[in-house]
Design a protein around this nucleic acid. Structure first.
Lengths: 219, 219
DNA sequence: ACCTGAACACCGTTCAAGT
DNA sequence: ACCTGAACACCGTTCAAGT
């Protein structure tokens, strides 16, 4: 209860405020100056807590990942397939919650404790299924990639909902008529209704688990 | 050969210059003002060609995708597995060539002609393997997601190579010791040497093709 | 149609100075 | 240790005006 050496505000307060601005006003509002103002601070005071804007972004990634329950994913009583699926779904949900998540995630390596904890659980789970350490690491990476990739495509599609740029009127435009793509057009509505995240993840896990010699793969 | 109505510069020139700046000086250099200066134009003149910076970014995505040979991927003489693999590899190579590619790709929906052409080939290929249109669309989306996801993870890792932010000295830091993740640490070098892109893609395609009733899946 | 110049409302980051 | 104020070198975008 003794008063700590640091006054007024903590790193966690700054990250929380940054997320609030991200939700309320979008990624552009997540600026050193904007967050500082929201906290009643001067922009320069921010550099007491984070060495750069990028350091703040990476702290936000860690906070985002910290809300995922890795403990449940480590519970060996539940079959592995169910645990990876839950983990991937949770990660996907967190990434989908904020439009700017992809920029956050690519702000630096996923090497914070929460990111490493997630990787650890994934590699451990695949290893327990009979994979070699190298295959388990590649499998974990593939699952990360799939989830991040779906999040990226989702984010890109949402980005287009507001303000579509129009082609510049004359015949020299780079864009051509989209009616030339019948298969894409025919399946666009179906893809929108059910984006197939779960289905694709199941197929990926099918392929990954079929790689283990003594196949224990789930349905 | 008659002189066109538009003088000095074309949309394609602007996109080319933007890519040159991206390669030479990184994503931060791809600004309306920066590209304009490199072309000897005033920033405001840029708005004659593109309605916004985002429109320029999306044109860059299309130019990036235009270098992928979709024709070869449509050649039914070659087995489908080989064609998807080549297509995904080419896309991955293009995305890896520029550090800022992920920001580009998430600047809006992948709905330009080149992006749609790629989707069309993917959906068509999976359909020809015996998939329902819906499954083929989901499979195409899964392949996109996997490739974009690997590119995102790669970009994130490269972003960390320059300028690592240090934790802020005291015990209240958000970051903990990375030595607590033995599996991740043990496989980190292997993952760096061979990122498993091809292996993971093969597993994904295994899983996807195993979904077709009369299985024609390749090794 | 294409381009300029001036202006508006912002950025991240550094530095010297205060307490 | 934490914070302020002033400054530097930038942004995207709009508007009125020129040719």
């Amino acid at each position: 209860m003794r008063p700590g050496p640091r006054r007024s505000i903590s790193q966690a307060d700054i990250v929380d405020t940054a997320f609030r601005l991200l939700e309320e006003k979008g990624f552009a509002a997540v600026s050193i100056r904007g967050v500082a103002a929201a906290l009643g601070l001067t922009p320069t005071a921010m550099y007491t807590y984070f060495a750069s804007k990028n350091a703040l972004l990476r702290a936000m990634v860690e906070q985002l990942l910290s809300t995922i329950d890795v403990g449940a994913a480590s519970d060996a009583e539940v079959i592995w397939r169910g645990r990876v699926t839950a983990l991937a779904g949770a990660l996907r949900t967190r990434l989908a919650a904020h439009a700017g998540s992809m920029v956050l995630v690519t702000s630096g390596p996923l090497d914070g404790p929460n990111a490493l904890g997630l990787s650890e659980v994934l590699i451990g789970g695949f290893t327990a299924e009979g994979m070699t350490p190298a295959d388990a690491a590649h499998s974990a990476r593939a699952v990360w990639a799939y989830v991040l990739g779906i999040a990226a495509v989702d984010a890109a599609e949402r980005a287009g909902e507001l303000g579509h740029a129009r082609p510049p009127s004359d015949g020299e435009t780079l864009w051509t008529d989209a009616a030339a793509f019948p298969l894409t057009a025919a399946t666009a509505d179906a893809a929108r209704a059910d984006d197939g995240f779960g289905w694709g993840l199941d197929r990926l896990l099918d392929g990954l688990t079929s790689a283990v010699p003594a196949a224990l793969s789930a349905p």
